[in-house]
Amino acid sequence: MRALKVLLAEDQDMIRGALAALLETEHDMRVVASVDRGDLVVPAARECLPDVAVIDLDIAGVDGLTVATRLQDTLPSCRTVILTGIARPGVIRRALSVRVAGFLLKTTPPERLPETVREVASGRRIIDPQLALSAWDVGDNPLSEREGQVLKHVAQGAEPSEIAAALQLSVGTIRNYLTSVVVKLNARNKVDAVRIATEAGWIP
């Protein structure tokens, strides 16, 4: 039987090495690529044609769910498993919407990873039932794509003038977006808006 080809995407060297060692102990798996940035996943996948990609949600470069979406568009035969340290309901909803095949917490017992790789490779979808249920406790993301971009910059500590320069918009437009975000999230201020959106998983 052909060994399952697995691509690993994790920006912390020690964790990536441990994951690779764990999977390589399985007789039916082979790690064919290991990358430390989200923007390297698709090029690596094109070259090695993995069956399953295991991707850290918060990987550097491009967030894991964006990578999963791009990978699905580029290589539909490759199934994706997202690993995360924090189960934010909004993130799980987004994962469900982009058809991620597996969603595992990093606190999951190690033996669940190879089991999940096998299961998603066979066509199943593996997301912890409690995580899936919690995802529906949070409503749909009320923010537009642009509002989400603006709020993400705020979360990173940027001032309106810096955000305006980065997004090539006027400072007034940025302030209008921030006002809209605060109203939509029923937040006290932009800092509170960042907290609400982060906890819901609406900003990566």
Rank of each mutant, 00 (worst) to 15 (best):
T179N: 13
A121R: 04
N176E: 09
L49I: 11
E145D: 12
W202E: 01
A21K: 15
K184L: 04
I15Q: 14
L131T: 00
R188S: 13
P204F: 09
A33C: 11
V32A: 14
L133Y: 02
E162W: 03
H27C: 14
G157I: 05
L185P: 01
G61V: 09
T198P: 02
V31P: 10
A200F: 01
T108G: 05
D51R: 00
R112Q: 11
L57M: 08
D137W: 10
I59K: 07
V67S: 02
K5H: 14
G148F: 14
D51V: 03
L65M: 11
G123L: 09
T69Q: 15
Q149K: 15
R70P: 01
E115K: 10
D56E: 13
T198R: 14
R125H: 13
I55L: 15
G64S: 10
E111K: 01
R93E: 08
A101L: 02
N176I: 03
V67C: 09
L105F: 03
V54A: 13
M14K: 06
E199S: 13
V154M: 06
D192H: 15
R146K: 15
W136L: 15
L19G: 04
P110H: 07
D39T: 13
E159G: 00
I127K: 05
S97I: 04
S170R: 11
A45D: 02
A53P: 04
A3R: 12
L113S: 03
V67F: 01
L49S: 02
S170C: 05
V32R: 01
V6D: 00
L8H: 03
V42F: 12
P76K: 00
A158N: 09
P43A: 04
L75I: 15
G61N: 13
C78W: 04
E26C: 14
T66P: 00
I203S: 00
D63C: 07
I55Y: 01
R146E: 07
R79T: 08
A165Q: 09
N189M: 12
L105H: 05
L8A: 14
I15K: 04
T107W: 01
M1P: 02
G85P: 06
D58P: 02
Q156D: 09
D11L: 15
S144T: 12
D137M: 11
A197P: 14
I196Y: 02
V31G: 14
L71H: 03
D51C: 10
P76T: 06
R79S: 08
V98H: 03
R146A: 15
R175G: 03
V117E: 07
V35P: 00
T198Y: 02
D128H: 09
S161A: 14
L167M: 09
R112S: 02
S170A: 15
Y177D: 15
L167K: 08
A158P: 09
D137N: 13
Q130D: 08
A166C: 10
M14Y: 04
P76A: 14
V150Q: 01
V52E: 00
G201S: 06
L8D: 04
E111N: 05
V62R: 12
I92H: 03
V171R: 13
K106I: 07
E24G: 14
V171F: 10
T80D: 10
K184G: 03
A164S: 12
L185R: 11
G64V: 07
L65F: 06
P129C: 05
E111V: 00
A164N: 09
G139C: 01
D128S: 12
I196H: 04
K106H: 08
A3Y: 06
E145M: 03
T107F: 08
L57C: 13
S170W: 10
V138W: 00
R118M: 11
G201D: 06
